[in-house]
Structures are given as structure tokens and as C-alpha cells.
Design a protein around this nucleic acid. Structure first.
Lengths: 254, 254
DNA sequence: CGTAAATTTGATGGTTTTCAAGCCATGTGG
DNA sequence: CCACATGGCTTGAAAACCATCAAATTTACG
């Protein structure tokens, strides 16, 4: 079940703060929601974080339909969110890396609309939905981060909506992962998730993702070693992915 | 340009009210944003409507990037909204029928993110963005309609995001049009838009839409006469379209 | 009535999926 | 330590599906 080993894995805020020095010294604070906040506000933010949860790869964070009282901020690792259709087929909706927030839907809804599972060993911070909501109304900088986060989700959801070729999708995915994981210059990009999840997310067959990767490798655009990928010609990938990002002049509902 | 013949085509609110008896007697009031309001509130709503615009088929209502001071409520006809990508290719984002509202983005943004063009002869009501925003904060029923309208847009946008077969897309489209246009029992469904716009909206080739329609006709699911379509076996279509609607347990961002 | 546009049908080709098999790493039990 | 099973990844061959090109037919409209 979801919270297997919960009690053992959660460090109370005090212990965590003691162990890590609090949010001010969190290694992923720059990417975190709290990133744009001042020192004082960051401390206040730290009091919202009621604990840190360690999740082994494959473990469930929460399930669709469960009451949503908590928003999670990813501190390390990778969480995938997905839905299940009527036939029980998985449908990956997104990957959440360090600094990403999961469960923002919870701000306006009572239940999680998706399942959330750790794809790699991960750490996530608990944040009370109600306290976050309250704090956000008092802190414009935080509210801006929340809105940014939501509109970013929407944009990336819409960018997958178009009919793009397999190469365009994979190229865009690799570039996005590269910018989000930001490996040190010269170091390879290590993808936290497997080919099957990537393919599902991009709405492609697993084999197609493989083939596109080998095609890119043969073209000299990158080097593949299992889940480690070295981008050799990011410009070529960017050219391929272009139409995926330029497509939406502004965030577009209708 | 957008407002060609604007001055001639707009009836001032007073004249319109005189001609039609006001929003209380508008033929599409049940589908309108004002639909859920009480008599008194509907009258107040009527004062927000500053005019009615007649648009011939093919005429532009507004262009992407234009300052968004007005929200439009479709009274009759059909307006399509679309974006243009870098190469100038059109991309249909939605069709707006009687009762739909166009430009709700304008509630939070300064400019229209999309182009809006009448696909068939249409009538649209002008509503001031600022007055609508003000009125909505005072009228919970109206605010609910606004949120419903937005979440409906989001859901339909996401339902197109999936990778579905041409038959699934066309079936879902026809069912949606059938329920929104609600032809009298036994009467055919008259589509306001052409095959090209349908195909573009569904991310298919025009020819594919044609072929699917003839395939449906040969299967006995419907009868096609130009833009008039009679659904003979809605259940068969519903079965095909199922995965498109059941896919999202709840409105899902992430 | 005639021209342009929209719709339909046919033939062809390309991209992706599907089915099938092999490879490789990891882990387990003997 | 090895045999073996497992699951993820990769590659190959065939088929499905849809887009594209081309042309016939119909419809719309000045």
C-alpha cells in the first residue's frame, strides 16, 4: 500500500531541520516553491513543512481518489503521476523532479485526481494544503510561484497535445530533462525513469523511443549508455523540438 | 479587418432589447452564462450586454494579440478560435456555439491569445470584461458558471491530447456536436463548420474525416448529406468514443 | 451560368505500432 | 561460483494506420 513503512521513513520537521539545517540549506531550495522567497519568508515556509518522506523506487506516494490534504514538494528523485483508464491502462501525465510540487490540484479539489509513484529513490516534503493556501494569500511572491507552476503544467500538457513526430517528441523530452536536471557541463544526463514510462508519457511505443534514440546516436546528436545520455549536438535537437515550444504564443485555453 | 462593418452591424443594447425583449426572452438563454440566474439577476446581466454583433460567415471577431476588453457570448451561429504557428499554419482550438463564451482568458490577461472567426453567420453579445468581472464577484451563481465553463474547456482540450484513432475522434466529435446543438428528435444534425476545420480541430487530414464518415455511413451508424448528419446508431458511436471521455476521472492538471 | 471552393474517392507512401526474438544486466538459489 | 530466471532494453520484420498526392464530382455564390 501507499504508506508502507510510513512511520519509519518520515522524519519530523524538527529532526529534519536538525539533520539538514532547514529549508535555507536544502540542496534543492533554488528550484523549490520557496526559492523566490526572502530569508524570513523561507523560515516561515520551513514551518509549513511537516516532514520529509523517503520513498524507494516503485513505491506509491498517493493514489487517485484519496483525500488530498497534503501537497508534496519533491526534494530529490523523481515521482511520476498517472491515471488509469477503464481498461486499467496506465497513462503517465508527468514527471516531477527536485523542486517540483505535486498535488496543487489539492488547492481547489478534495481528492487527488492522479496516482503518484516514485520512479527512482526519492525524498518528498509534506506541506499541509490548508496552511499552504493560507500562507500563499499572505505572500504574493509565493502566490506567483504557484500560478507559475500551474501555468507551466498546463503549457507542458498542451505541448503534448499536438501531433508531432516521434523524433520531435523525444528531442523535446530530452532537452526538457536536460534543463531540469541540469547536469554539470560534460557530465551525462541521467534519466531517472525507464523507456516504458518515457514512451507512455510521449504517447509512443517503447520500441519507437529506443529506435529514435539509436537514430539520434547514429546521427551524432548524442551518446546513449543505458539511462545515461550525453547530448553532443543540443542545437540539432533544439531544431527538431522547435515546433513543440513555439506553438503556443500565450497560454491558451479558450 | 476584424471589425469590418462594425458600426452598421451592432445594435445598441436598447434597440436589441426592444427587438428581442432582452435576455429574459433570448432564444439561447438556457445555454447562456446567464442561464442559471434568477429573473432579477438576469435583468442585471442584460445591462452588461452592451450590444449584439452580426457576423457573416468567414468574418473575424477578433485577432490574437488584440487588447481584450470584451468577452463575447455566442447567441447564434458558430465561432472558431485558432492560433497560427511560426509557419502560419492554422490550428483550430475550439468551436463556440450558442451559449458559449469567448474570451474568458480576458478575465486574467490583457490580450486575446487566439484568433476568433465566424464559421457560419453568427450573432454574438458584447460583454465588458471589467463589468463581468465585477458582477461575477457579487454573484456566486455566475462565478460558478464561469468556473464550469473554464474547466469544461480544459477537459475538452485534454481529451484531444490523447492518441486516439481517427474513428474515435470523429465519433466523439459528432456526439459532442449532437449534444451541444441538440437537434429535434428525428431531425438531422447540421454541422456549422466545414470538413477542413473539423479535421484541423481533430488533428486529422480532411480526407481522413471524409473517409471515416463514409465508413460510418456504410456501417449504418449514420447518414451523411453534406453538412447534415443523421445519427442512426448513437450507441455504436458512443462505444467508439468511450475511451475519449472516460479517460479523465477528474479534471487533471498536475 | 460559370468559376472557385468544398467534398469525396482512389492510389501510393511514410511513419509508427505490433509481434517476435535476442541481448544484457541483475539477482537468486543451488 | 555458476546456472538460471527475470525484467529492461534493443533490434528486426510485417502490418496498420494515416497523410499525401491526384483527380472526379458536387456545391456555393457572384
Amino acid at each position: 500500500m501507499a504508506y508502507e513503512g510510513f512511520a519509519c521513513d518520515v522524519l519530523p520537521a524538527a529532526a529534519r531541520s536538525c539533520a539538514t539545517g532547514g529549508c535555507q540549506h536544502c540542496p534543492s531550495r533554488r528550484h523549490c516553491l520557496a526559492g523566490g522567497l526572502g530569508t524570513e519568508e523561507t523560515q516561515r515556509w520551513g514551518t509549513l513543512v511537516s516532514g520529509v518522506l523517503n520513498l524507494a523506487g516503485g513505491k506509491t506516494l498517493f493514489e487517485a481518489g484519496a483525500p488530498a490534504q497534503t501537497v508534496y514538494s519533491v526534494r530529490a528523485g523523481c515521482i511520476k503521476t498517472f491515471t488509469l483508464d477503464a481498461e486499467g491502462n496506465e497513462r503517465v501525465r508527468g514527471f516531477h523532479l527536485a523542486g517540483d510540487v505535486i498535488g496543487l490540484d489539492a488547492l481547489t479539489q478534495e481528492r487527488y485526481p492522479m496516482h503518484a509513484v516514485a520512479v527512482a529513490p526519492s525524498q518528498v516534503c509534506h506541506v499541509s494544503r490548508d496552511e499552504l493556501r493560507q500562507f500563499a494569500t499572505l505572500t504574493p511572491a509565493l502566490m506567483n510561484r504557484l500560478v507559475d507552476s500551474l501555468s507551466h503544467s498546463l503549457r507542458s500538457a498542451l505541448s503534448l497535445a499536438g501531433d508531432h513526430s516521434a523524433e520531435q517528441r523525444v528531442a523535446a523530452f530530452l532537452l526538457q530533462m536536460h534543463s531540469r536536471l541540469a547536469p554539470l557541463p560534460g557530465r551525462p544526463l541521467r534519466l531517472p525513469m525507464g523507456r516504458r514510462d518515457i514512451a507512455n508519457y510521449l504517447r509512443l511505443a517503447t520500441e519507437t523511443v529506443c529506435r529514435v534514440l539509436t537514430r539520434f546516436e547514429q546521427a551524432g546528436h548524442l551518446a546513449v549508455h543505458d539511462r545515461e545520455i550525453t547530448l553532443r549536438a543540443p542545437a540539432a535537437l533544439r531544431e527538431l523540438a522547435q515546433s513543440l515550444s513555439l506553438e503556443t504564443p500565450a497560454a491558451a485555453l479558450h
